[in-house]
Computed example of a mutant assay.
Amino acid sequence: MEKIGIYCRVSSKSQEDDGTSIDYQLKKGNEISKKLGMNPIIYNEGGKSSWDSNINTRIELVRLLNNVESKKIKSVWVWNMDRMGRNSQSWYSILKILVGYRVNLYVGDSLKPYNFSNPTDRLVTNILSLITTYDNELRRIRMIFGKMETLKRGRTFIGGTIPFGYDVDESKNLIPNSESRMIGKMFQMYEDGKSTTDIQVMLNQSSHFPRRSKKGWNLG
């Protein structure tokens, strides 16, 4: 049975919430592969941004492209074109391989692939990729300006993860909490000549955890 690579990726929590979660992408990819009568090979990138032009930071994408080059798979499915790349430079690196090995690219619910041996499909894919990149760059610019306006209005919390040592009040401003004394202790240790490793050990021995992990503090 012919194999098809199912590539899944999200880059933000909002994408997990708006109907394009990893689970949803896996479900749709498996449905498409079943309809096509192909054996799905899963490449689950999890939460990983695609803004970086260096595609080597995305391990599963690299594995997929390696399998294309070794001719283990000739078909690939993604929920949306921007799952593979939002950055023009990275997308053309990916496209070069897909075109070179004449991969059939299935997108979304469509059972009709983009055939890269067909010049019309190559043109359409390039146009769609440019539109997607343009739209994402505009969205990113709007987000940056939105955060700048929030700061200008005097609000110190502009979204995302609340920093360690702070809470957010009703006016969306950051206010120190009981953890803030640990921040003072960290600065004092650094001023006293302690290393970052010493500070890490101190934090791991405390009852406080990082915002995004319960596995302890790291140096990076």
Rank of each mutant, 00 (worst) to 15 (best):
L174S: 04
W217K: 06
H208I: 12
M186F: 07
Y166I: 04
W91G: 03
R102E: 15
T156W: 07
E179H: 10
D52V: 03
Q200L: 12
L111D: 02
Q15E: 15
V78E: 02
T133A: 15
G165R: 10
V201I: 15
N177F: 06
G154V: 02
T196M: 14
R63Y: 08
L174R: 09
Y24N: 09
S117G: 08
I32K: 00
Y166N: 01
L105A: 05
F157Y: 15
M143E: 08
Y101G: 00
I94K: 02
T161S: 07
S12L: 06
N173T: 03
K74G: 10
E137F: 07
K194V: 00
M202T: 05
S207C: 10
I199M: 14
F157P: 02
K152R: 15
V68Y: 01
E2N: 12
I183P: 01
N56Q: 14
T20P: 01
L174H: 10
M189I: 07
M189K: 10
I131F: 13
N126M: 12
R63C: 05
L26E: 01
L123F: 15
M182W: 13
T161K: 06
Y92T: 08
Y114F: 15
L123V: 05
E60I: 04
R83T: 02
S53A: 10
F116S: 04
K185D: 06
P119I: 11
D192K: 14
E16L: 05
Y134M: 07
R139P: 01
Y92S: 10
V99M: 04
W77G: 01
K35T: 08
D52K: 09
D169R: 07
S171L: 13
W91N: 07
E137T: 06
Y101H: 13
T156P: 02
I131S: 07
N118S: 11
T133E: 15
Q15K: 13
M202K: 11
Y166S: 04
W91A: 10
W79G: 06
R153Q: 13
V62G: 01
L138N: 14
G146T: 00
I158R: 11
D121Q: 00
W79M: 08
T125P: 00
K72L: 08
L111C: 04
D82H: 00
N87G: 04
T161I: 15
E60K: 15
L123T: 13
K147D: 00
V76H: 05
Q89G: 00
N39W: 11
G85Y: 00
V168R: 09
S53K: 13
K152W: 08
M143N: 11
L26I: 02
S11V: 03
D167N: 14
N54G: 02
D198S: 10
K215H: 09
K3L: 12
R181Y: 09
T156D: 06
G216A: 12
V10L: 02
I42W: 01
D17P: 00
F164W: 04
I158M: 09
K152F: 12
V10Y: 00
S14N: 12
S75T: 07
K34N: 13
N56D: 13
S93T: 13
K35A: 13
K214L: 14
R139K: 14
R153A: 13
Q188I: 01
S171I: 04
V168I: 11
T132K: 07
M1L: 06
S53M: 05
I183E: 07
F145G: 01
I141M: 12
L95A: 12
N87C: 03
N66M: 04
K35E: 14
E45N: 09
K48A: 12
N173W: 03
